[in-house]
Design a protein around this nucleic acid. Structure first.
Length: 787
DNA sequence: CCGCCCACGC
DNA sequence: GACGTACGTGGGCGGA
């Protein structure tokens, strides 16, 4: 987007006229009023219009037409305006000087803005306003309690102290160099390539002198299960690192790795690294396992700042004020033409790889004290760090997929989808909506005028989500059914049935998901390539896909073990609500028990309808849902929904109390936490903005619940894994789906394994108030049966 | 290439 | 009167 500077706009047009056009057309009114230095879409468009129409009057006369033609731009402009306004709030709280007489800034106080933008990590807008001059500063102070960004009234006192604190962390002489960024060129370092018998031996001797070794691998790809080792780097003290290249020849690489086996096998060594799961998995394919302890800097940062950016580049920049060598300098930009590390000349890859190990070690020394200060050592040491090896083994194992079955099913889905499509074709009136989803939408809403009040999305498109369409179907619009079914079929086919076989690893004939251990802000795992945490289960057609997940051979069987109602049990336990705790202790169905209380009947008198509604309320409680949402969800009136909720709160007073105390805790401390001390920072909890604060409040309620459940299953995974090792079992834990664990179990071990799993899951993390934790399991010839 | 919408899971 | 249920991943689309 080309930006016309304020002076340019001003030089051509009377600023008042521009402002008026901007205002009347709903462009960037706020921006003009509050932050006149930023001339964006609004002013530019306004200036153009004035040029085109000649006079202000002409523009205004044609305002309606212009508005229509602008469409998107108007909306985007408004968004910009909101952002600008908030920036103005922030900026004017620091002494940025601007000329009062014409209400615009002719010369920005660049240093001040640099401070503000870098403190707030406004990289993009920083560059936009300050040009390439702008580089973010290193932040040494702990995060999480920093300034609010959006929608918040920033009280002058704290805002000033936060900003000055951030900047005072670097002295004024350093400021220049920090902004320019430390890098490999201007920072003393000693990076060495280590090749040949003598050098390798002496490297091992050097490394042996330390109980803490930073390790990083360079490979040919991002999939650890197929990537080849290209080199290893090590560091045991800042600014010094070694790079050991590994040839494409596997035997030769194995011989090089053998030099390091005294280190790999030494249980007293702590291996430091960023995302060690990846490196360990690569090494596992070369038969190397690390016997020692781990310190994963990515996970350390995850518990320090769960919602922060975690790439090496981001961490190096933020915590070390250092800009690492860009990988693109070695292998080119992302895309099909990108090369591999294998082809990079030694001198270049040496610097890049050694630097990575050096940085990771330096990050460790920054993070270790932060873990203690922020009191997140426990969740790091007991939950996250020890889980790395477990997840690595699960990823290594993978799961077998029945490719032939999927192939057949794909054809079936295709046929069925075609049939549905033919339904439209055969009805001439539908012929115009063949191709695109959007055509359906236009057809449904515009031509048939089915619903003149149809909701639009914020980008001006009609909403055609399932719930919207179902409401149409209820009005007897037959085509809606066909559309929904068509969508289901194509979704299943493209996302699962056709996608899964492509991801089968040719080496193992299995699919190996990758778990994201530092992704979800609440502490949950994430799964990708493929995502095995969202395999369909709700509809018959979808559920069918689970049949494709099968045990490794005829001697094995799949076991699935899952926690029963874990999140509600956690709600009961941490709120201490007497009635809900009692219900769980009695062991009755929790939704029936809830219904009995809410409707004031005996549990034996609870109807399906009542239980269904109670279930929905229980679910809503976990997410902080209100009467509107419940009503919408259940298709009842808001009055009825409110009645149910009021009754619920009366019957379970401890839960209302939990919500209030949690939100108050968050307001006071700026974070909420799980039973294991995992924190989630809620910068918006005191926002003056209703919506923004509402989000933070729901997060305050939900995060300790969801996060505690995540803590629990992560502990259980470690316990189950350790117990299976202890018993020298051949069965393997292969999947985690938030409250479920899946095992590829040797049939002869099943009777021993079943209680081992359940016992460890149930005792992994006892809940307060004696709320029982129950896990259940099933087994079968595929994942569907096992469920 | 990226943002949006939709749809799948817990 | 706002806004209206948490956390994710991925495919398809449309516009820059």
């Amino acid at each position: 987007m080309e930006i016309l500077g304020p002076e340019e706009v001003c030089a051509k047009w009377n600023i008042k006229e521009v402002s008026q056009v901007v205002d009347i057309l709903g462009l960037m009114g706020d921006a003009v009023d509050n932050i006149p230095g930023i001339a964006g879409v609004g002013e530019k468009t306004a200036a153009k219009l004035l040029a085109q129409y000649g006079t202000l009057e002409n523009v205004l006369a044609d305002a309606d037409n212009i508005k229509g033609a602008l469409g998107e731009k108007v909306r985007k402009g408004r968004e910009d305006a909101i952002l600008s306004k908030k920036l103005a709030t922030i900026i004017t709280n620091v002494p940025v000087e601007f000329h009062e007489e014409d209400f615009r800034i002719k010369e920005w106080n660049k240093e001040k803005l640099k401070e503000v933008f870098s403190a707030l990590e406004f990289k993009t807008i920083g560059k936009r306003l300050l040009g390439d001059d702008f580089a973010p500063a290193a932040v040494v102070a702990p995060v999480g309690v920093q300034t609010d960004l959006f929608g918040n009234i920033i009280e002058p006192e704290p805002a000033k102290t936060t900003i000055s604190k951030t900047t005072s962390a670097v002295s004024s002489e350093e400021t220049e160099s920090v902004f320019a960024g430390k890098n490999i060129q201007n920072t003393p370092h000693q990076y060495e390539a280590v090749v040949g018998d003598i050098a390798l031996n002496s490297l091992v001797t050097v490394l042996k002198s330390s109980k803490e070794i930073c390790l990083d691998t360079e490979t040919t790809g991002i999939d650890a299960n197929t990537a080849e080792l290209v080199g290893l780097s090590f560091s045991i003290k800042p600014a010094v690192a070694y790079y050991v290249p590994c040839p494409a020849n596997r035997e030769e690489t194995l011989a090089i790795l053998a030099y390091f086996s005294p280190l790999f096998n030494d249980a007293s060594i702590t291996w430091v690294g960023q995302n060690l799961k990846y490196d360990m998995l690569v090494l596992k394919w070369y038969g190397v396992e690390l016997a020692g302890n781990l310190f994963d800097t990515m996970l350390a940062h995850y518990v320090i700042e769960p919602d922060g950016k975690r790439s090496m580049d981001a961490l190096a920049e933020k915590y070390l004020g250092y800009v690492p060598v860009a990988i693109e300098e070695l292998i080119g930009k992302k895309g099909k033409s990108q090369g591999t590390m294998r082809d990079v000349e030694l001198d270049k890859i040496k610097d890049y790889a050694a630097e990575d190990a050096d940085i990771a070690l330096q990050l460790k020394h920054v993070f270790a004290p932060m873990l203690a200060e922020l009191e997140v050592e426990k969740v790091f040491n007991e939950v996250e760090n020890p889980l790395v090896k477990v997840l690595m083994e699960m990823e290594y194992e993978g799961i077998r997929v029945d490719e032939a079955f999927l192939h057949e099913y794909s054809k079936e889905l295709e046929l069925e989808a075609k049939k549905r499509k033919r339904v439209f074709i055969n009805k001439p009136v539908y012929a115009s909506i063949l191709h695109l989803q959007n055509n359906w939408e236009k057809f449904l809403f515009d031509k048939l005028k089915l619903d003149p009040s149809a909701k639009k999305t914020k980008t001006g498109q009609y909403q055609t989500g399932e719930d919207v369409l179902l409401k149409l179907a209820a009005r007897g619009i037959g085509i809606v059914d066909d559309i929904l079914t068509f969508r289901e079929l194509t979704k299943l086919k493209s996302t699962y049935v056709d996608a899964l076989p492509v991801l089968i690893n040719p080496k193992t004939n299995r699919v190996h998901t990758t778990y994201g251990q530092a992704v979800a802000v609440t502490g949950r795992l994430a799964s990708n390539n493929p995502n095995l945490q969202n395999i369909p289960v709700r509809t018959d057609r979808g559920r069918e896909i689970r049949k494709a997940f099968i045990p490794r051979d005829k001697d094995h069987i799949l076991i699935s073990a899952d926690y029963s109602q874990i999140e509600l049990r956690i709600v009961a336990a941490i709120s201490g609500d007497q009635n809900m705790c009692d219900a769980f202790k009695r062991g009755t169905d929790i939704h029936t028990a809830t219904a009995a209380r809410v409707y004031n009947v005996e549990e034996s008198e609870v109807t399906k309808e009542m239980r269904y509604k109670a279930k929905s309320v229980n679910f809503g409680i976990i997410y902080g849902q209100g009467a509107f949402g419940l009503a919408d969800n259940l298709g009842i009136t808001r009055t009825e929904a409110k009645e149910i909720i009021d009754n619920y709160k009366k019957q379970f007073p401890g839960i209302q109390e939990y919500m209030d105390t949690t939100i108050n805790f968050a307001r006071e401390h700026g974070y909420v936490q799980t039973l294991m001390g995992r924190k989630r920072w809620l910068r918006d909890i005191n926002s003056a903005n209703f919506t923004v604060r509402g989000f933070a409040e729901r997060n305050a309620i939900n995060s300790p619940i969801q996060g505690t459940a995540a803590d629990m299953i992560k502990l259980a995974m470690q316990k189950v894994f350790a117990a299976m090792r202890r018993e020298k079992m051949k069965s393997r834990m292969i999947l985690q789906v938030h409250d479920e664990l899946v095992f590829d179990a040797l049939r002869s071990e099943v009777n021993e394994l079943r209680p081992l799993i359940l016992e460890n899951m149930q005792t992994a993390m006892p809940l307060p108030n004696d709320v029982p934790v129950i896990a259940e399991c099933g087994e079968g010839e595929n994942w569907l049966q096992a469920h």
